[in-house]
């Protein structure tokens, strides 16, 4: 297990990667900036588990909060609305 690189409140940016395989980072959130809401825990990498590999070491999984208006330029609701997405550490960089 590698220690968590980010803490709640940290600004992070989701990598804008387009790679094959089994990915749990939704397309719509790639490239967007948000704030770490919490560290959910440490988990094996699903991108490896999907191919019957062990996916170790476990890595931090974060719940990251994004402003809807930033994610969807045409978002119809108020500016305060948010979307939370769980993202594994290797998809995040410091914003």
């Amino acid at each position: 297990m590698t220690p968590a690189r980010f803490q709640p409140g940290d600004r992070v940016k989701v990598m804008k990667a387009d790679v094959p395989g089994h990915l749990r980072t939704p397309w719509y959130i790639r490239g967007h900036e948000g704030e770490v809401e919490r560290i959910c825990g440490f988990f094996a990498n699903p991108e490896e588990l999907a191919f019957n590999r062990h996916g170790l070491p476990k890595r931090a999984l974060y719940r990251v909060r994004f402003a809807q208006k930033k994610v969807w330029p045409d978002y119809a609701g108020p500016a305060g609305d948010t979307i939370d997405v769980e993202i594994y550490e290797h998809w995040l960089e410091r914003a």
């Binding site: 809807q68 609305d81 997405v85 769980e86």
Partner: peptide, 15 residues
């Protein structure tokens, strides 16, 4: 109502 914040949670992983 607009003065209530809507938080969407996309359960993408282990939660």
């Amino acid at each position: 109502p607009d003065d209530t914040t809507v938080r969407v949670h996309d359960s993408t992983a282990d939660m």
